[in-house]
Amino acid sequence: MTSAYFITGTDTDVGKTLVATAWLQAANERGLSTLGLKPVAAGCERTAEGLRNADALALHAASSLRPLYYEEVNPVALPDACSPHLAARHAGRRPTVSQVVGFCRGSLSRRAGLTLIEGAGGWRVPLNDIEFMSAIAVTLKLPVVLVVGVRLGCLNAAFLTAEAIRRDGLELAGWVANVRDPGMLALDENIASLAQGLKAPCLGVVPVLESPSPAAAAAFLTNLPWAAAS
């Protein structure tokens, strides 16, 4: 049995990669073959091997499927750390949804036990001047997992994102609370409000970790799904 999910966030820098790599780690421990993808990454460093993105490298390292080349994980690598449509424009490129979907389908055809496709930024981040990153998940018809960066303002961002996912015709398969502000007022009450308003399973609550790692975060993902909806 194979499963695939699209990982999105309420914003950029909310912990999508930490959650994705932790999920892959948990799947590896269950003996599943795993594959993590970051098809579009803005903010790549130039190396002797070419452009490399830290999130994509982390997903590559957490994936058990081999052989696996970096370009399979991150086919669209963009140097500038800004919105993908602007980073692509600066690099003289224009990625399209159909191109990115084609890359993803090629990887999905390898039929890993678990495949996670991580988006860039939030749900409505532009991919180019007329298309959004969300269209990748819509075209692939993947269930979505939402990573909520728990900090002031997260309720509005989470509820609007969940509304957009469902309006786009996709299943919100679950959400993860990733605490970004340990001193947040009424932290537990905010998480309870998320649970009430999102109307989807909470897959875990990840606290601020002293040494963030996939293994450390995986311990807090206690309700992971292991079969995607057909």
Score class of each variant (00 low, 15 high):
184 M>P: 07
200 A>V: 13
126 P>F: 08
110 R>G: 02
179 V>G: 06
120 A>D: 01
157 A>Y: 10
222 T>Q: 10
218 A>L: 01
97 V>N: 01
179 V>M: 10
154 C>K: 13
163 E>P: 02
125 V>R: 00
102 G>I: 04
180 R>Y: 07
113 G>D: 09
88 A>Q: 03
178 N>A: 11
139 T>Q: 13
160 L>H: 03
126 P>D: 11
211 S>E: 14
129 D>A: 14
199 K>S: 11
122 G>H: 10
131 E>A: 04
201 P>G: 05
166 R>Q: 12
146 L>C: 06
152 L>T: 08
218 A>S: 03
202 C>E: 15
209 L>N: 00
88 A>K: 15
184 M>C: 08
216 A>M: 02
116 L>G: 04
181 D>W: 11
148 V>I: 14
117 I>Q: 06
93 R>N: 10
137 A>E: 07
127 L>I: 06
102 G>Y: 11
177 A>I: 14
139 T>A: 13
162 A>Y: 09
156 N>P: 13
222 T>V: 11
95 P>V: 00
130 I>F: 03
211 S>G: 05
166 R>Y: 08
154 C>I: 14
195 A>W: 05
149 G>D: 10
90 H>T: 12
176 V>T: 11
101 V>E: 09
154 C>D: 10
109 S>A: 15
101 V>H: 02
212 P>W: 12
130 I>G: 12
118 E>Y: 09
230 S>K: 15
190 N>F: 07
180 R>S: 12
132 F>A: 00
91 A>H: 09
